Simulated assay, not measured.
Amino acid sequence: MEGVAAAGVAVTTAVHDLGGFIRTQREAAQVSLRQLAKRTGVSNPYLSQIERGLRKPSAEVLAQIAKGLRVSAEVLYVQAGILEQKDSSPVLDAVLADTAISERHKQLLVEIYESFRRENATATTQTVPTTHD
């Protein structure tokens, strides 16, 4: 029974942390709760409950909030525990933080960058056979 209670506390803490993170992002963007509700199509009371850790939003709602805050949906998914944290990279951080490009363009850039990294990692692990005379 203690394990169930501990798991419940962990979920509650994670939801509260997500709400706090969203509030911090909203305040940093100098966006009111009403403005965010208008941008996202998510009701003001529901956003308030998310920020206070009373509700756990779906991935779709998180995507709407991310778009309204002009942050990467991936960042919110990681905060919510939907995605695992990837290794940090200054290049990826810069792409994900850029507000001048769309979420779709960010996703494409990240995919291209990661494919180059995989290709280079494969190339460096392959050894060139040498001949011994």
Rank of each mutant, 00 (worst) to 15 (best):
G3L: 13
A5T: 12
A5I: 10
A6K: 14
A7I: 04
A7T: 04
G8Q: 08
G8C: 01
V9C: 00
T12P: 00
T12A: 15
L18I: 12
L18F: 12
G19P: 07
G19C: 06
G20A: 07
G20M: 11
F21D: 14
R23F: 05
Q25P: 03
R26G: 09
E27C: 02
E27G: 00
L33F: 01
L33A: 02
R34P: 00
Q35V: 02
L36M: 05
L36D: 04
K38L: 04
R39D: 06
T40R: 01
G41D: 00
G41H: 00
G41V: 01
V42Y: 05
S43K: 01
N44Y: 11
P45Q: 04
P45D: 09
P45E: 04
Y46A: 10
I50A: 06
E51C: 04
E51K: 02
E51L: 05
G53I: 03
L54W: 02
R55C: 02
R55D: 04
R55Y: 02
K56V: 01
L62D: 10
Q64D: 11
A66V: 11
K67F: 09
G68D: 09
L69Q: 06
L69R: 08
V71H: 05
A73Q: 08
A73L: 01
L76F: 09
V78S: 08
V78M: 07
V78N: 12
G81P: 09
E84D: 15
E84S: 14
K86L: 10
K86M: 10
S88M: 06
S89M: 09
S89V: 11
V91Q: 10
L92Q: 11
L92C: 10
A94K: 14
L96Y: 13
A97V: 03
T99C: 04
T99M: 07
T99Y: 01
A100E: 15
I101R: 05
R104F: 09
R104L: 10
K106D: 02
L108E: 12
L108V: 12
L109H: 08
V110L: 07
V110C: 15
E111N: 13
I112S: 11
I112M: 13
Y113T: 06
R118S: 13
R118L: 13
E119V: 05
E119I: 10
N120R: 12
T122W: 01
T125W: 00
V128T: 15
P129W: 04
T130I: 08
T131P: 03
D133F: 14
D133G: 15
